[in-house]
Each structure stands twice: as C-alpha cells, then as structure tokens.
Amino acid sequence: MKLALGPLLYYWDNEKVNAFYDAIAQSPVDIVYLGETVCSRRHLLRLDDWLEVAQKLSDAGKEVVLSTQTLIESESDLKTLRKITGNGNFRVEANDMGAVRLLANHMPFVAGPTLNIYNPQTLQLLAEMGATRWVMPVEMSGAALSEMLQSRPANMETEVFAYGRLPLAFSARCFTARHHNLQKDDCQFRCLDYENGLTLKTREGQPFLTLNGIQTQSARVYNLLGELEELRATGVDVVRVSPQAYHSEKILHLFHETLEQRIPPSLALTQMEKLMPELPCNGYWHGKPGLDFIPQPALARSA
C-alpha cells in the first residue's frame, strides 16, 4: 500500500506551510495532495504558490495531486477550479461534480472523498469518465468497501482516509467567524488562530467536533493504524494521512514503518498516542458510529 498526505485542511501562514512541505519532501510519503479545499477566502497561498510547492515535491520524487475546493459557489471559485483542472501538469482530485465535468474525458483524475461514491455502479461511471483512483467516503465501513471492490473497475486505485480529524460537513456559513460574532465576508481570517481547528465540546465537557471555518470535523482523530492489514486484505491501495499542525512527519513515519512491517501496529499506536491532538476513533470502518473506538483484540494481545 502507498502512503498519501491529504490536502491541508487548516489555514496556516506561508512560512508554516512552506516549512511543513519542506519537511514532507524529506518524509517517506508517496503521494501528496495540495491546494485549498475548504474556503476561497484563504488566499495567503495563491494557486501559483501551490504550484511552486507542487514542483518542489515532484522534484523530491513525490506524486503530486492538486485538490479542488469542495464547496464551489461563485464565479471566482469556478475560475480557480478551471485553472486547476487545466494546469496541464499535475493530476487533479475532483471534490465536486463541477470539477468532474471539467476533467471527464480530458485527463485522468482522482475522484475525491466528497463525490459520494457509495456503490459500484457510480464507481464504474466515474471510471468510464477517466477516474483512475477514488477516495472512499469517510463514513463508509470496511464491509461495504469490501463489497464495492468485488466489482472494481480495471485500473482503479482505492484510497482510504486513515488518519486525522474527519472532515464531516461543509456549510456556506463560517463557524469560526460565527464564534467571533463576525460575518464570513469580514471574517478577519480568524482561522489563522486555530492551526488544528477550534474544538467544540458538549456542555459536559466532552470534545465532540472541531470547527474549521466552513468545515466541521470530528474532535477525535480517526486512526486506522491498527487496521492496516485489514485494509490491505480488502484491496486498499493508498492510505491517507491528514495534515495536523504538529508531528505530521512522525505520524507519516509510524504509518510507513507499520506498512513496511518494521514495527508492530500495537507499538506504533502507543507511540502515536502522544502525537494526536485528541483521543482516537475508528468506528466508521467497523460499521459503527464514527466516534466509537473499537480496540483491536489482536493488537491488545500482542502488546
């Protein structure tokens, strides 16, 4: 299985972004998804800046994929989208059917996790349009994936979101701006203050969700490190790690070492505990509520 780094979901300043990807260039990751997928107001890095990062990573031997914005509303959003789909160099991850329209039958593309591919018929359709990899919806279970892949189209890779706070929902409203009693149009770019998002807790103090601008994430960290062998057996080709403000390289390293079977998953999980911003969850994979954490009995025994 290959290791991928998903698109950066938070808003960091340029210095942090550049330093982050400099480190990623040296990491054992195979594929890097780049670009702003959450909010068009986050413009510290323009498309040209992202393309520079892309070139740097490509030169370092990484497969680079440009990810498109998930919620596309305005004509200027569409302009950016067309520039990305027409970049002529890097493969594109389509996160909206508008992007699929621009890519279909023009160039091979990655069908992103928000395209809602829940059945083999839709997967087949996207394959016919030129998708060569698809990213499973985060809420899909391992059992459902297994059924999906029984009739997998030829030349179609399967990628699974395997680490990070889960991107669960998108809205026209900005919840970070709302927290500051600001309107989205005058958000003062408050997302810059929350490099891992802003935690939403229940009134009894249970971390529940993470506000990240117009995106809502889980508070818990989805982590399938303990399920990697199961993923491999199901036919998954790529596992995705989602960037976080700290320790991303260490997390990629632990995933890599586990995939290479140089370290047992139980040990990797223990080492990862201190690197996660919140407790782990893995319920979706097991067909349960996403926030559940099902300890792996096999791992517990070997630990």
């Binding site: 919620l71 809602n116 985060v138 809420e139 889960l166 929902a169 996403g290 926030l291």
Partner: peptide
C-alpha cells in the same frame, strides 16, 4: 449531501 455529522454520532 455533504454532511456526515449524524453518522459520526
């Protein structure tokens, strides 16, 4: 169509 909050909970 872009909200999995309910299945998360």
């Amino acid at each position: 169509g872009r909200c999995a909050l309910s299945s998360y909970a």
